[in-house]
Design a protein around this nucleic acid. Sequence first.
DNA 1: ATATGGATCCGCCAAT
DNA 2: CAATTGGCGGATCCAT
Length: 346
Amino acid sequence: MHEYCIPTVPELPTLRASERRRRIVVVASPTPDPLELIGPINVLNVANFILDHSGRSDLGYDLEVVTTRSGVIHEIDGLKIIADKPYQRLRGRVDTLLFQPMELDDLWNREDHFLAWVKRMSAQVRRIGSICFGTYILAEAGVLEGRHVATHWAYLDDFKHRYPGVILDIAPIYLKDDHIYTSAGATSGLDLSLALIEEDFGRDVALRVAQTLVLYLKRPGSQAQFSVQIPTWLTKEARIAELQSYIFENPSGDLRVEALSERAGMSPRNFSRVFAREVGMAPGNFVEQSRLDVARQRLEKSEASISQIAEWCGYSTTDGMRLSFERRLGVSPREYRRRFSSSRAS
DNA sequence: ATATGGATCCGCCAAT
DNA sequence: CAATTGGCGGATCCAT
């Protein structure tokens, strides 16, 4: 397992013995999108890692992957993902079943009893979920009648037409209806997994996982086209959640602790304390991180000059921006753009 | 490259 | 009395 650094030991809820280990089974399609497959598993694994390093190895997830067809299920140059356990061999009690998307032609034309199995399992397990258009599998198995669900935006019309009895909601990233969890796209599978963690082991653990992944994904070695912000829904206090958005949208504004605390209607000291508790980092830290995120996006996606971007993002000088980049990412803005700009290759 | 002044963070204690 | 909030001051970080 990769060595992550853990901010602090999370607060844990008190759990009954039966709630301490959760068996989560991911059902992978024969042609998975690697990001969608690995992402949610990795998020759950980070939760295990954090719980383990908090001295609570009795808590966590027992993860398994089964497939709808065995053999090599994904192959790119020099890398193969091999599935060795078909769904028929799954035994025992499962807590949560997560469905990966499956080629729709494959779904319509299956000749085995896969859909019957899905229906049977969905009645047995505590939770079922789907990533992206994996929602089709649940719909086709007939377990979504009358339910509110989400799916990938590109499939909205087709899905509505095909399953008129299912209520498709457009907006949310992921959606929970009773014990059914559906998500809207590849990275929303990460949000879905975070939501499961929050439900099982508390907000604090979910927050630590999000922080850990943000730090990890944002290292310059692993380019993340998608900027993974810590989801604001992990923030309980509405005042603080609003401020997080405000900071992100106004990087060049007055974001000193004093100004922010006034906005929140608290004393500076108390604001710092509440903010740190809710968000997991001190306000000044969060402000710097946000400015950096916005600057990164601009560097990647616009042609604006570095000094222009520095001004937009609330750095008083380009040097300030450069130092912040060196500190947090280990590269200069110029170098960052050279590596990651979407307009120019290599 | 280093010094300086301001901002921030956080432990501690007092007030509510 | 427990929990939340506010203020103070030293250590540290950061911009100039």
